[in-house]
Write a protein that binds this DNA or RNA. Structure first.
Length: 190
DNA sequence: AGCACGATCTGA
DNA sequence: CAGATCGTGCTA
């Protein structure tokens, strides 16, 4: 399946966040290809978005977001979790899409082995996802368009009727207009 | 140099 | 609902 090229990420972040639903996240680890279909995303829209890490300007942590699109912005939070974001829009416009959940497609046994507890849970939740895919800070700044280590592919077309938009999670500190913005996108299960 | 807190998850 | 657990950025 074709890799999502740089142009895919180089446009309006809300559009990218929607278009990523149904996309396939691919991550080869130790010769095994882990993959999953994206079913939940959140858009973080640049300096004007008070929920976005870039809101208060560039720092060493969020520098990747200020760079060119199609790179991975991975950061550490709550003292124990990594979160995966995909940088969008032009260089200098610090926007990104947070990947919150995927439906595991391949390498499911390896993902579960990496998770602490057993059981056939879905890989939902942005930190669990990173754990299952073995994603950590070493991939921060990785170029997603080069087709190694970590990349995305076309997979399934999700019709707009199957997409729900809701407020984003865990951003109570943001201004009301951003807290209430419907910038989280979820594929309805059926 | 110190400190408060977070785009979370788990288990009680 | 509390606890785990620590990098980051703000204040001094």
């Amino acid at each position: 399946m074709p890799i999502l090229h740089r142009e895919f990420y180089d446009r309006d972040t809300l559009q990218v966040a929607r278009a990523l639903l149904g996309g396939k996240l691919v991550r080869p680890v130790n010769g095994v290809e882990l993959s999953g279909m994206i079913v939940e995303t959140e858009a973080y829209c640049g300096k004007s978005d008070s929920a976005c890490h870039a809101h208060r300007g560039e720092t060493p942590r969020n520098a990747v977001m200020f760079g060119p699109p199609a790179h991975a912005y991975i950061y550490f939070t709550y003292g124990m979790h990594y979160l995966l974001n995909l940088v969008t829009e032009k260089e200098g416009n610090p926007c990104a899409v947070l990947i919150r959940a995927v439906l595991p497609l391949a390498g499911i046994a390896e993902m579960e082995a990496r998770r602490k507890k057993k059981g056939a849970e879905l890989t939902n939740g942005p930190a669990k996802l990173c754990q299952a895919f073995g994603i950590d800070k070493s991939l921060n700044g990785w170029d997603l368009a080069c087709g190694q280590e970590l990349w995305l592919e076309d997979y399934e077309i999700i019709p707009p009727k199957r997409i729900t938009a809701t407020p984003r999670i865990g951003i109570d500190y943001a201004k009301k207009e951003h807290r209430e913005a419907l910038w989280r996108f979820v594929v309805k299960s059926r």
